[in-house]
Amino acid sequence: MKIAMATLEESMGTKLDQTFGRAVYFLFHDTENGENKFIENPARNASGGAGIKSAQTLVDEGVEALIVFRLGSNAVQVLEGANVKCFRAVDESAQVNLDKFIAGELAKLEDFHPGYHHTK
């Protein structure tokens, strides 16, 4: 199973990024082999639709769970469409978040902000 996090730096000691769409890095952790992979978020400087593009990156990577502070409604639509489960991050390192997730201690993220675009 692949787990994703939005991070500020490329290390397991990093804090998580408060934003999703314009996060600096994404961390992908593979529970099968314990591998951690960091990539620069290609949507970081997008002129618009950053949440959608970031969510697409996760979907293309085959992510099944996302640990994050907050999500906009457009990103949620993409993630839900691909059955990615979202969990509320705690203000600790990526490693602590991962450990807590595996221990089943993270709550599901169920409230979303309406995003920065008007929605109908």
Binding site: A43, A46, G48, I52, Q56, V59, N74, Q77, V78, G81
Partner: peptide
């Protein structure tokens, strides 16, 4: 990013 790719088909975000 007005279109996302899900389940082998494009999904439209009209406001984007």
């Amino acid at each position: 990013s007005g279109l996302a790719f899900l389940g082998n088909a494009p999904m439209l975000f009209p406001e984007i």
